[in-house]
């Protein structure tokens, strides 16, 4: 088992969760999402985000509308669908469980 794969697996699930979290606050277009992710050091290269957005959209967790931009090409503003909100709730639940699990194990390991 390659150690890289584990990292990728961990990141990927969390990256989707992060995108959904960003969009849960307000609708945003790709560059805004990227900015948010970069700020949190979730991504290294931008190109990763586009395939994920497309896939989340195709899974009907996201929807978008076109908006004109004064400074550049029109932008796709993404927002969560109802399904996406439900999905996000599920992810939040899982995230908390995982967090608790990792913390519990870490604490137990330390105290033993």
């Amino acid at each position: 088992m390659k150690i890289e794969n584990t990292k990728i697996q961990m990141r990927k699930g969390i990256l989707e969760y992060c995108i959904l979290l960003i969009l849960d606050q307000k609708e945003a277009y790709a560059s805004e999402i990227i900015a948010g992710l970069k700020e949190a050091k979730m991504i290294v290269v931008e190109g990763t985000v586009y395939p994920l957005l497309t896939r989340l959209k195709n899974a009907e967790l996201l929807q978008y509308k076109w908006e004109e931009s004064s400074s550049g090409p029109p932008r796709k503003y993404y927002q969560l669908t109802g399904e996406g909100q439900v999905f996000l709730l599920g992810l939040e639940e899982t995230w908390k469980e995982l967090k608790t699990a990792v913390e519990t194990i870490t604490i137990n390991a330390k105290t033993k």
């Binding site: 794969n5 990927k12 990256l15 991504i43 931008e46 190109g47 990763t48 395939p51 994920l52």
Partner: peptide, 20 residues
């Protein structure tokens, strides 16, 4: 460089993913 080379993008995504 900002966008990332195809290989880099791929690396950040799941390699077993059917899309890629």
């Amino acid at each position: 460089a900002t966008m990332g080379e195809p290989e880099e993008i791929e690396e950040e995504l799941d390699q077993n993913d059917k899309t890629f």
